[in-house]
Nucleic acid binder design. Sequence first.
RNA 1: GGCCGGUUGGUCAAGGGGUCAAGACGCCGCCCUCUCACGGCGGAAACAAGGGUUCGAUUCCCUUACCGGCUACCA
Length: 497
Amino acid sequence: MDNQTVKIDPRNNVRTRFAPSPTGRMHVGNLRTALYAYLIARHAGGSFMLRIEDTDQERFVEGALDIIYRTLAYAGLSIDEGPDKDGGYGPYVQSDRCRMGIYQKYAEQLIAQGNAYYCFCTKERLESLKTNAGDKEFAMYDKHCLGLSKEEIAEKLAAGVPHVIRLNVPHEGTTTFHDVNYGDITVDNAELDDMILIKSDGFPTYNFANVIDDHTMGITHVVRGNEYLASSPKYNLLYDAFGWEVPVYVHCPLITDENRQKLSKRSGHSSFEDLLDQGFLPEAIVNFVALLGWSPEGNSEILSMDELIEKFDFLKINKSPAVFDIGKLRWMNGEYIKKMDDAAYYEKAMPYVEAAAPSIRDKKALADLAKSRIETFCDIPELLGFFEKVPDYDISMYTHKKMKTTPALSLEVLKKVLPALEAFEDYTNDALYAFLQQFAAENGLKNGQVMWPIRTAVSGKAMTPGGATQLMELLGKEASLTRIRAAIDKLTAAAEA
RNA sequence: GGCCGGUUGGUCAAGGGGUCAAGACGCCGCCCUCUCACGGCGGAAACAAGGGUUCGAUUCCCUUACCGGCUACCA
């Protein structure tokens, strides 16, 4: 066997990989695993590889490959090697590797060494091995086929009897494996099932393909989810059987929803693309997800990809699961929006602004107004919708304690200020502000007693982006006056009722 | 059921035998102010429980509880 032909990277570089199954949209947990693998590689100046684990023919989803590439690209994770970028360790798709007989070859080596064996047991027999305990069924293979003679095996093989190849786990002793994060984990070999290496369809199982590929592709740091922790000792058995060096294991804690359950489709923010659809920026998602299970030294949390690369330390990854708090992601996204330069911001925000307030001429001013007030782009319609149409509102909104206004006073003020505004021509913020300030002074009113009624009248909202005069500038004279007149009617009607 | 993990404010988290137990989100209050937002300042809020070890445990050990994972011809 030529398991010594493994290529060793001449620079002895750190090599990590992201190895998703093409089964649909990319989960944020997967994204974080990919990110950590990427950061480990980049931090060390090593390389990052993409490998496709498509050994389960039934779960394959059409188009899933595109999603993987798209997600990686949006997230800013550049790959050095992968299906579309051969780095000398290919192929990078497991079904291709399977067709080349790679897994079969290694499985046969194990059989020759006595570390694995053919198993011809039927589903029915396997079923009969199951025992009930509590509300679940459990089965441990009984090594039945290990007792088959060479002749029997050859006969069944020749006859084409369906079979799998199983690992021959010793009954005695313990197996210990080491994770940089979780430390040593030791289990009794008696607890370990004779896991299937090659399925009856000829494809390897994840457990087997993973070990073969990580080794033959020169992976130095295996980054994966916590769900593999319990089965990891089995992998060591495989490495030992081949006489291969065990890579560094970096297991990541689970990311859960607010109910501490596995993130699901139902939680609505389970995948990277869902989040993009909800108006989040890829940079913010990446930043946020990086901080779920790891934290940098110091107190800053807004970190660019370059900063993440510089600061990331896989030795400081948390052990406990983290709740995905969409509220904090929203805040972080808002921070990213505020930091965007004009060009990038307008490009993202304009479509939403156009849709929210098509009749307002100065779209950029609207977008500017929104910039410090939104957390995702999807907040724009709600924020700016009143520019298009005054919503139904209650006149109680004219009552404001601090501004010292009431509906009655508001009506009085609006009636008085209307002719003045009709006569006024310069509908720019500064001019209007100066004008209204003077109006207030002349009439013995506080600023707020003039501004609040006007702002309410032109917006119909208790809270608006920008003050009364800013809104009037954007609405223009005609629309502003129309809205104030409508407010006077509304208040008059209410007063008479 | 067995095995393997985990448990610091509501959430993300730092710390790790002696601390007033960081910081962030959220929440509350104050300031700024033509409302809101931004920005600034301040506040409430945590070591799962019980046993050890120790002069001293949030930190080390054990037990329990709770949560999660694995126990597939899924990854």
